[in-house]
Design a protein around this nucleic acid. Structure first.
Lengths: 117, 117
DNA sequence: TTGTTTAGTTCCGAAGTTCAGAACTATGGA
DNA sequence: TCCATAGTTCTGAACTTCGGAACTAAACAA
């Protein structure tokens, strides 16, 4: 297994962040890591509502988030320790993550009102 | 030619906005429409730095921006009148567009310093 | 009216991306 | 050493994007 690549803060591109978070499942994964501060394992995030994300898909979602500079991943024995890089991203692109995550939160609220989900 | 589809403001999804703006060329197109208030023709935006975007690609970029709810397009004779829907999007997702566009602006500044573009 | 020009859309094949199952790697514990 | 657990990589199928060619629609001149 090749070592995990994490971009330097100055190499983080807005398009990579937007692309990473334009997938609602990745946005949910990131929101959980962000709010938890530190989420122990990737597999802890495989349950997405009533469906399960396959391991291989989950792994590639984490790779996209990692290479976009949104999360930092570190091996701890057999499992992965994931933490968000919010503070770094915030210092480089002020307000970006907060605006994106609150947009998602408000659209979930709106759809919950309408459809009863 | 089928009539142009524009989503209602309450049907605009954050993932569609992020996807639309995760392409730097679309982000540039949108930035120009946004700052101009109203850009007369699609073809006015085909020059992207030193390269020209083909008509068919340009047309599909406009379609993505339109269907994401970011712009409003209207036929005026032979050409298209495009205007941004910033105010509507701002009222639904406060701060989102400003944060995204300023992230792009700051990353262009940063790369201009490094590479001399 | 008819032909020409201009502006944009649609079609379609090639190239690239994403998804998820199967096989694999790496670590920890019995 | 063997097994279980947690993730990664490989692979092919499904989907998306790109751009050239052909098309549509409006404006205008003859």
């Amino acid at each position: 297994m090749r070592p995990l690549f994490h971009p330097a803060i100055e190499d983080i591109q807005p398009q990579a962040i937007l692309h990473a978070l334009s997938d609602p499942r990745r946005a949910v994964i990131f929101a959980r890591i962000r709010s938890a501060g530190c989420v122990e394992a990737c597999s802890a995030l495989s349950a997405m509502g009533d469906q399960i994300i396959p391991k291989s898909s989950l792994s590639s979602h984490f790779k996209v988030l990692r290479e976009a500079g949104l999360i930092h991943c570190e091996r701890h024995g057999v499992e992965m320790r994931n933490r968000s890089r919010c503070a770094e991203v915030e210092s480089r692109f002020p307000g970006l993550l907060a605006a994106i995550m609150s947009a998602y939160a408000s659209s979930i609220d709106a759809s919950a009102c309408g459809t009863g989900e």
